[in-house]
Amino acid sequence: MGWRWFHQWGSPRWFYERAGRWQLVCGWLALTLLITGSFWGLALAPVDYQQGNSYRIIYLHVPVAFLAQALYAAMAVCAVVLFVWKMKLADVAMQSIAVMGFAFTALSLISGAVWGKPTWGTYWVWDARLTSMLILAFLYLGVIGLRAAIQDPDQAGKACGILVLVGVVNLPIIKYSVEWWNTLHQPASLKLTEKPAMPASMWVPLLTNILGYYIAAAYLILGSMRAIVLERERRSAWVRELVSRA
């Protein structure tokens, strides 16, 4: 006794069945939070005195940018779990998080560019934050590409794990060097978070949306993990049974 809660994570079937239920809960929760937060933020929250209505993109941009960075850390945790406990599910998680992380990074870059055009007058500047997000996107792409190039899934998973761990050590160094580089080249131009001490009517919906996006990400990741588990376990009896029943 005692370790059952831990060991059951080694069973793909157990995960597949449980994750289906968790996914349902996450899905409804995310939907409720996102509808509430988005409606509140987009329609009810007051107009910004400086940026007008264009500031409202923060209700998409900020949660997505948070997730883009958090997911890399999540991937690194999965890599550690993979190497320490040899848990295959961690590799499945790493695979789906890499794709999702890239998607969120791309979304944050695109939504930032869309906001940048009316506010800064340009889609892209070599601002420290923008640059480090771009590098992050390339790091995610590297993990996805490396997995695609190696045929054996176990080997691909370990190779990606090594890459993710090397990347996570480098990430803070990259972030600080980019910040330093930016101050060297163009001092005091633009900052993404010039916080004009937002009123509660602005940040409460933002917080709702951040929570909503996190849970939505969990929903998406659980869904793609279930699909990957099914694909990897396609030769096992329980998957065949599941497929023949359907």
Partner: peptide, 23 residues
């Protein structure tokens, strides 16, 4: 070393490592 096992990796090893050169 990471792309050793895959025959069709091409310049993947370079692409994967380039972002780490930033600092």
């Amino acid at each position: 070393a990471l792309t050793l096992g895959s025959s069709r990796s091409g310049i993947l090893g370079v692409l994967v490592m380039m972002p780490l050169f930033v600092p």
